[in-house]
Simulated assay, not measured.
Amino acid sequence: MSSAAPGAVVNRAAGDGTLRREPQAPGRRASRPAAGWLGVVPLLGFAAVMLGLPVAAMAAGAFTASDDAGTTSVTAANFAATLDGPYLESLLGSVRLSALTAAVATVLSLPLAHAVVTSRIRGLREAVLSASGVIANLGGVPLAFAFVATLGNAGVLTGAFGLGEKGWSLYSFWGLSIVYLYFLVPLMVLTLTPALDGLRPQWREAALNNGATGLQYWRHVALPILWPTLLSGFVLLFGTAFSAYATAAAMVGSSIPLVTVKIASALTGDVLVGQAGIALALGMDMIIVAALVMGVQLLLQRRTSAWLS
């Protein structure tokens, strides 16, 4: 009698004495993986309530409008308004700022994280990672005030180095980009550190023993392995910068067109009254942009994983 588990593949002796692999009939154990999905139900329910319902409410408000008589109708005018004039400019401004800062932070963080991982001073590594965890979560009004006091028009460094006479302005696109890099670079360092820890020293030694240079090792060995992590980190940084609001609102206000600031202005009626539908449509535009970026990242990551396998 065979003692193999149901659903397993066992070897049976054929008539000519050879062994033949035969699958066993699925039994009770075959249904256990399906039962394991029950553990995901609470997470899916939480995501449906905390994410699905707000998105559904946002979509419903974006596609409806009310006239002076209080009559509600389905319309696409809110989305049409977001694709024209200052609303489109704010959306494109947020995409440019987020893509630029995410790309620069990704490039800058790789050598920094590599220096941390390869450091022989354990205390230095722990101090850098601890500081990165704190700085990555520092934002909002305190961060804006710190940069205004340091690099603003009357900032300490601005006056000490005469940056104002050299054309420096913190309240510009490039000034805001530097502020965003302040918390994006530490966040990327935290993201890359575990991946760099996974690079085995034997791979570099093997490459060098076969005549490869350090640049060739990074180009043909290390970077292909780190590519999925770099893509995931870039998407994380893009989403963080794209959704940031308090720092930009406190530092530059509406002088730089950003979609988050424009949404807040439309909801509070600072400029125009009754623009809540347009604000909800702008929120849906943000979700669409984030979904497109994540879709491209998943596609590239899948192709890279298939190539590495």
Results as ranks from 00 to 15, higher is better:
Gly93Thr: 06
Val179Lys: 13
Gly269Tyr: 05
Ala212Trp: 04
Ser119Phe: 05
Trp37Glu: 03
Asp67Trp: 11
Ala5Gln: 14
Arg302Thr: 00
Ala136Thr: 09
Phe79Leu: 15
Leu143Glu: 05
Pro54Gly: 00
Arg20Ser: 07
Ser232Lys: 04
Trp37Asp: 01
Val259Ser: 06
Thr304Val: 12
Arg20Asp: 05
Gln275Met: 13
Met188Phe: 02
Gly233Glu: 05
Gly140Glu: 02
Tyr245Gly: 04
Gly167His: 11
Pro142Leu: 00
Tyr180Arg: 07
Ala80Trp: 02
Leu299Cys: 03
Ala113Met: 06
Thr240Val: 09
Pro142Gly: 03
Gly164Pro: 03
Leu124Arg: 14
Ser132Tyr: 07
Gly274Phe: 09
Glu165Arg: 13
Pro54Cys: 00
Leu190Ile: 00
Ser309Ile: 03
Tyr182Met: 11
Thr229Asp: 11
Asp285Phe: 00
Leu112Phe: 12
Pro42Thr: 00
Pro228Trp: 09
Val74Ile: 15
Arg29Pro: 03
Leu236Gly: 01
Leu97Ser: 00
Leu190Thr: 02
Phe147Ser: 02
Gly45Val: 14
Gly283Ser: 14
Pro142Ser: 00
Leu112Tyr: 06
Val116Trp: 03
Ser109Phe: 09
Leu19Phe: 04
Ala76Gly: 11
Gly7Phe: 11
Ala80Val: 07
Pro111His: 03
Gly164Thr: 08
Arg219Val: 01
Phe147Gly: 01
Val235Ala: 15
Gly52Met: 07
Trp174Thr: 08
Ala5Glu: 14
Met286Leu: 13
Val273His: 06
Arg303Glu: 03
Thr106Leu: 15
Ala102Arg: 11
Gly283Met: 06
Ala56Pro: 04
Arg32Lys: 08
Arg204Gln: 14
Leu236Tyr: 04
Leu199Trp: 00
Leu43Ser: 09
Ala105Ile: 11
Met251Val: 12
Leu215Pro: 01
